[in-house]
Amino acid sequence: MNLQKNTAPSLRQLLSIEWMKLRHYKAFWMITGFFVLLLPLWNYGISNGVMKLGPGNDLNLVSQSYGFQNVWQNVGFWASIFVIFISILTIIITTNEYQFRTHRQNIMDGWSRLSFYHAKWSLILALSLGTTLYVFIVGTAFGMQYSSLSAFPGNIEYLLYTFILSLNYYGFAFIIALFLKRSGISIGMFFLYSMIIESMLVKYINWQTNSSFGNFLPLQCSDELLPFPIMEMVKGILVGESTSPTATTYACVSIVWIAVYYFVGRWKLLKSDW
């Protein structure tokens, strides 16, 4: 039995254990339930003209934006705001481990530190895929209502951007939780950064450098992938093509940030005491 080989558990095994931790957790069901309800209801409200846009009914922006052509960008944009809830869920799930000291127990019971870390990443990946899948379902439902199926898939690359954005937000939330360890302060920092600090930094950097470099900040680079669609359409009509970085650039920058979260978190977990 000496020198037995260590076969690290697969991501699937890790994910199934993460699922055991979550499936009876009320906060998990409440927060995902909230996201699941809010996304279609909100979009339903907007598509039914709760939010009036444009002068009169001459320019029917709303129905244009919910046809298959633009629905992915549109629903994706609203999802990019509501991912805040799943980000908070990610923080709570992570800080729970510290609060209950189960991060230690998992290791003591036989996980390596890296397995613990990868288990959480597998969950983040699953949450991102789930978010994307749900945007796809909601988008398809609206698309079929506002356009014919022949228009499918339209600008479906926005679905990929939704995935990248989700992974970026959840990964960012995870790293904050990993460093701060307490749920209250982690959620506070997450809001403070995402809502205030970053938007100020973006404006400041862009103004100082007279460029779009500020848009490359961790969360902003993904926000740039899913801009407010009606505004974009209006902007497109008014000013024509812009010179800002392309979506591909923002996607690449987002992926770089996600990799940075991964390696910073990994370095932190492997070197520190638990």
Partner: peptide, 11 residues
Amino acid sequence: FGGSDATVARK
């Protein structure tokens, strides 16, 4: 256990 891999040992 005489030098078993640490995670295998902890199990």
